[in-house]
Nucleic acid binder design. Structure first.
Lengths: 239, 239
DNA sequence: TGGTAAGATATGTATAGTTGTATAGTAAAT
DNA sequence: ATTTACTATACAACTATACATATCTTACCA
C-alpha cells in the first residue's frame, strides 16, 4: 500500500481493501468493522486517511457509522436503487401493522390536545401509547405510534404487550371489527431522533401517514401515525 | 465528506423532544418521566446521552430528578414553538388534475426506458409530455408530468394545448373512459429545478405520487407523476 | 397492624474507548 | 504559487461498562 507506483491514492486503496473484505463475506451485515485506530495501525497510515476510505464506503451505502460506536456493515450490501423499493407492497390500510416489529415504548398516559381531538375524547383522557419500529429484513422501514383510548378499550396495553399485533390486540380487547375512516399522507423531514431509529440522516424525506380507525359504532378506537423511509418504501394503493 | 449524522446534537434533540412532550401536556407537573433506561431505548441512544438531555431540562427548571426515584415534571414550558400547520388539502384521486395550472412544457419526444415500461410501449416510442405546475392561492402546490403514448392517442398534444385539462383532452382525443389502476406514493427530496418551481429549498421533502391510467381495454393511456410540497399538502384518502 | 429486611429499580459517578470536527503543518505534483 | 494528499494533534460528542447510592416494592415476621 506504500508508494505503489504512486497512482492510486492511499485512501482509495484502503477503501478497495475493505470493499473486497465485504465482498468476500468477511463481515456480515450488522457486524462492526475494526476501529479507525486499528485500521490505521493495520495499514500503517494516519487515522484520517482511514476515515477518508471509510467515508467512500459510507457514500456507497455499504457501511454506516455511528459516533462513539463504530462503523457497521449496512443491512443491504447491494444497493437497490429502484428495484427493491416496491418490495414493500403493503396495503395502506395495513400500514405499520405487519410482523417484524420492535416495541420502543408501550405505556399509558394522558392524551394531548391534538390526540384527544383525533380520538374524540376529552383532553387529558387516558390513552395507551404504542410506539415502535417496523423492519424488513432487519432494515428499519418505518416508525409508528398508535394511540388507543383507554376509556373505550380497557385491557389494550396488556394485550399489545403479548401479541404486538394491533389487530389481534384489539380483538382480545373486545373490538372485533374496525374500519379506517380516512388516511392522510404528507412528506416531512426526519427529525434527529427519528433518523437514529430509521438509520437515515437527519432531514431525509419521510412519508408520513396518519389515520383513525373506528369501531362498530363509529367511535375512534385507534389514532395511528407512521413515518416511512422514503428511500425504502413505496406505498401502493390498490383500487 | 458525507457523514451519517445530522447537525443537531443528539442530546439536544432529545431535550427538545421531551420539552415538546411537556408543552403538549403529555406529562403534568408532578408526573414521573420514563426512566432513563426506557428513554434510552425509545430514542435508541445511550443512557448517558439521555441524561445529558434531561440535564438540560433540569437546568431550565422544567424537571427535577431524585436519585433512585426518577425524574419529575417541575413546570411546563410556555414558549415552546408548535410546528407549522398544514394549509392545503388535496384529494388523492384528483392528484394533478385540478384547476389553477400553469403549463411548463408541452412537447412530443421519445419515451425513456422507465416511462416506456409504465406505458407498456417499446422504449423510444413517441409520447406526449405534459409538464406543469399546480397552484392554490397563487402558491405552488405541486409539479406534475403526464405522459401519453402517441401511438394510442394521436391528437392529445393539441387537445392539451387548448384545454389544459387532462380529462377533457383525453375525451377530445377519443378516450371517453379511463380508470386508474394503482397509485404509488413515496417521499423524495426536491431537486434543484423542482425546488425552483415550487419555491422551496432544494432537498425539502416532497410527496411523490405516480400512477397509470388505463383505457377501456386495459391499455395504459397516461403515466402521471406528481410531486407535492410536503409542507403545503396533505393527501386525504377517503375509504 | 406495623416494622424490618431483602431485593429490584433508578439515578449518580467514574473510566475508558470510538467516531466526528477543527486546525495546522509537510511534501509532492501541477 | 497553488492545489492535492497525507500527517499530526487536540478536542468534542457519543458509546460502553461498571459500580455506588438512593428509593420503592414486596415479603415476612412479630
Amino acid at each position: 500500500m506504500r508508494d505503489s507506483s504512486g497512482k492510486t491514492p492511499i485512501w482509495k486503496a484502503i477503501a478497495d481493501a475493505l470493499r473486497s473484505d465485504l465482498a468476500e463475506g468477511r463481515y456480515s451485515p450488522g457486524d462492526k468493522l475494526p476501529t479507525e485506530a486499528a485500521l490505521a495501525d493495520r495499514f500503517g497510515v494516519n487515522r484520517h486517511t482511514v476515515r477518508h476510505g471509510i467515508a467512500a464506503l459510507v457514500d456507497d451505502g455499504l457501511v454506516r457509522t455511528r459516533r462513539g460506536a463504530g462503523a457497521f456493515v449496512a443491512a443491504t450490501p447491494t444497493d437497490y436503487p429502484i428495484g427493491n423499493r416496491v418490495r414493500f407492497h403493503e396495503n395502506l390500510i395495513a400500514a405499520g401493522r405487519r410482523p417484524e416489529k420492535r416495541i420502543l415504548a408501550l405505556d399509558e398516559r394522558a392524551a394531548t390536545q391534538g390526540e384527544a381531538k383525533a380520538l374524540q375524547v376529552p383532553t387529558g383522557a387516558p390513552v395507551c401509547a404504542y410506539h415502535g419500529l417496523s423492519l424488513a429484513d432487519g432494515q428499519p422501514i418505518a416508525i409508528f405510534e398508535s394511540l388507543f383510548p383507554l376509556d373505550r378499550i380497557a385491557g389494550i396495553t396488556a394485550a399489545l404487550r403479548d401479541t404486538s399485533s394491533v389487530t389481534e390486540a384489539l380483538r382480545v380487547a373486545g373490538i372485533a371489527d374496525y374500519t379506517r375512516t380516512s388516511t392522510r399522507l404528507t412528506a416531512v423531514r426526519a427529525t434527529a431522533t427519528q433518523a437514529l431509529h430509521l438509520q437515515v440522516t437527519e432531514g431525509d424525506p419521510l412519508l408520513r401517514s396518519s389515520g383513525v380507525n373506528t369501531g362498530q359504532f363509529g367511535q375512534p378506537v385507534e389514532y395511528g401515525r407512521t413515518w416511512f423511509v422514503g428511500d425504502r418504501v413505496t406505498l401502493t394503493l390498490e383500487t
